[in-house]
Design a protein around this nucleic acid. Structure first.
Length: 560
RNA sequence: UGGGGGAUAGUUUAAUGGUAGAACAGCGGACUCUGACUCCGUUAGUCUAGGUUCGAAUCCUAGUCCCCCAGCCA
């Protein structure tokens, strides 16, 4: 077996990896160089994570490298904040570009020279038409466009005008540089595409050095060629840009011959992955920011408590193909639970407390009990819990008129308190409104630690916290940001799920939970995975629910 | 009515002319100091119609349906 073969079995096979393997086998390439090329005009989201895992993953598997390159050719939309967030997010995802951090803007001088090269070759011209005129003469999907009246200017005149464009002699929109290809092409990208436009704008990297900026098409392939990219992987909508990508490579003295390949972008149910929509959600304050835990952004998912490993796991699971698809949100949730179940320590927390008084437990007494931190990982050790006469249990773990399927607490029923004792509910205390406010129970001292010496069983084990020794907290429970499985991006403001954020106050946590670092995942037993939010302060704990545990009881309960 | 792509269980994918396989979801069961995890079982698929071939998801022909493109965005 060669070094490249075992990889496919480990990460799955897809058409991109097949192509690379074939290119290596045929000798077309001796190594692999890919790149992740974000435009710094927003935060990265889970769709980008798919691309990042593909580009960096493929490079690592085949012993190559992956560049991080900012596609910063449009200064009116780009900001340093986005550059910083993108670097942070890619790194957090677990990838390293080493010294290979690049910017399209770093190639502006070279790209400019190549533009003049095209002019000299009679393959580019300065067009004085307005934006409207250019649009009007481009033709339609079924009709060819018509040539610009400026299409046949002399090389000298084009050169003179283009240099004056660069010198700043003209206002925005006055002229553009266009490639001279074919106004009748069935592929609209080939109808004399714009190469440079005048933009008197401050650029985050180049400042005011330039007032003309290359278009995406004129910058991307050439940047790939400069960096020696072998496989330039992008999404499907760029498929019909490929002939133009190749046209530049064919007509310019570029140092290498990259090729573009396209795969289907990620879509997920109950989610919108459109930078335009995400930007608007943030701008209009429909969410608290780019890192709102309900957002599908890397920053949002991180704050929510989703581990980077789960994102990588998910990317691997969904694969890479050319067919448009929508991945079930459940697939993502499974990946998150899979990682968290393995890595998160267990603790107890009562989200909706119901007081329980153990009538036969001596007043003023308490005792220490030992609880294991992770059932499948003895190395995680144990911790001490304090048990006393008054505790809290979950309201949902008590039912006044229990159904036959319900086997938690009810009057006359015995259950196990996790790591503690068996208790039996004797009596219910209600307030004036008839609401249950307290349970009177008795415990069996023989069952200390959670097992009965006589071998009798209970049907349920429930979680609890000590009334005296627990700490208060706020818990934020998140649900889908959008109420429909396939939200309409055109009307997304009305698609937002009003229950996407549920704030629970007055929750009670076991004391150990006060020391969990922000962002660290922990399982609240029987409920889900949570992590402290950066909003929390000493004495004011705030936890985010990353995701609930799989809940088959909810199905049974719903089904009657 | 132009050009470029794509169709395999409910979903995401594999099979590269030789037994259509997996994961998620679903359903049933076992186990359990988490109604979790784990384990076992199970339902369910090649867009259609022809053709080539001993043999077709795969090759050919003709259709059908879906997606993308008319920014001086990327």
């Amino acid at each position: 077996m060669t070094a490249v073969e075992p990889v496919a079995t480990e990460t799955g096979r897809d058409f991109i990896r097949d192509i690379i393997q074939a290119d290596l086998a045929s000798g077309r390439h001796t190594g692999v160089v890919t790149r992740f090329p974000p435009e710094p005009n927003g935060y990265l989201h889970i769709g980008h994570a798919k691309s990042i895992c593909l580009n960096f993953g493929v490079a690592a598997e085949f012993g190559g490298r992956c560049h991080l390159r900012f596609d910063d050719t449009n200064p009116v939309k780009e900001e340093q904040e986005y550059i910083d967030s993108i670097e942070r997010d890619v790194r957090w995802l677990g990838f390293d570009w080493g010294p290979h951090l690049y910017y399209a803007s770093g190639y502006f001088e070279q790209l400019y020279d190549w533009a003049e090269h095209l002019i000299h070759a009679g393959k580019a011209y300065v067009d004085d038409q307005s934006q409207e005129e250019i649009r009007a003469t481009r033709g339609t999907l079924t009709e060819p466009g018509t040539n610009s009246p400026f299409r046949d200017r002399s090389v000298d005149e084009n050169l003179d005008l283009f240099r004056r464009m660069r010198a700043g002699e003209f206002p925005n929109g006055a002229r553009v540089l266009r490639a001279k290809i074919d106004m009748a092409s069935g592929n609209i990208n080939l109808r004399d595409p714009v190469l440079y436009r005048i933009l008197h704008a401050h650029h985050p990297r180049t400042g005011n050095a330039w007032c003309i900026y290359p278009s995406y098409d004129f910058a991307h392939g050439q940047s790939d060629a400069i960096e020696g990219i072998t496989h330039s992987i992008c999404t499907l909508e760029f498929e019909d840009h490929r002939p133009l990508y190749d046209w530049f490579i064919d007509n310019l003295p570029v140092p290498s011959r990259p090729r573009q390949y396209e795969f289907a972008r990620l879509n997920i149910t109950y989610t919108v992955l459109s930078k335009r929509v995400l930007t608007t959600l943030v701008r209009d304050k429909l969410v608290s920011g780019w890192d709102d835990p309900r957002m599908p952004t890397i920053a949002g998912l991180r704050r929510r408590g989703v581990p980077a490993e789960a994102l990588r796991e998910f990317a691997k699971r969904i694969g890479v193909a050319k067919a448009n698809s929508v991945v079930d949100m459940g697939m993502f949730e499974f990946s998150v639970r899979e990682v968290l179940n393995r890595t998160a320590e267990r603790r107890m927390a009562v989200l909706r407390p119901l007081k329980v008084v153990i009538e036969n437990y001596p007043e003023g007494q308490s005792e220490a009990l030992e609880a294991v931190n992770h059932p499948d990982d003895p190395a995680a050790g144990t911790r001490t819990l304090t048990f006393g006469r008054e505790i809290y249990v979950e309201r949902d773990d008590f039912m006044e008129n229990p159904t036959s399927k319900f086997y938690r607490l009810a009057v006359g029923r015995e259950v196990r308190l996790r790591w503690a004792y068996f208790i039996t509910c004797r009596e219910v205390v209600k307030d004036a409104a008839g609401e249950v406010v307290e349970l009177r129970c008795t415990y069996d001292p023989q069952t200390r630690g959670g097992n009965a010496p006589d071998g009798r069983k209970v049907k349920a084990t429930i979680h609890w916290v000590s009334a005296a020794d627990s700490v208060p907290a706020e818990v934020r429970v998140y649900n889908h940001l959008f109420k429909n499985a396939a939200p309409n991006p055109a009307d997304f403001a009305n698609e937002i799920n009003p229950q996407s954020l549920e704030v629970l106050t007055g929750c009670r946590l076991e004391p150990a939970l006060a020391d969990v670092p922000v962002g660290q995942a922990v399982q609240f037993e029987r409920q889900g995975y949570f992590c402290p939010d950066p909003d929390q302060r000493p004495g004011a704990l705030v936890f985010n629910r990353t995701i609930g545990l799989r809940d088959t009881w909810a199905k049974v309960a719903a089904g009657g």
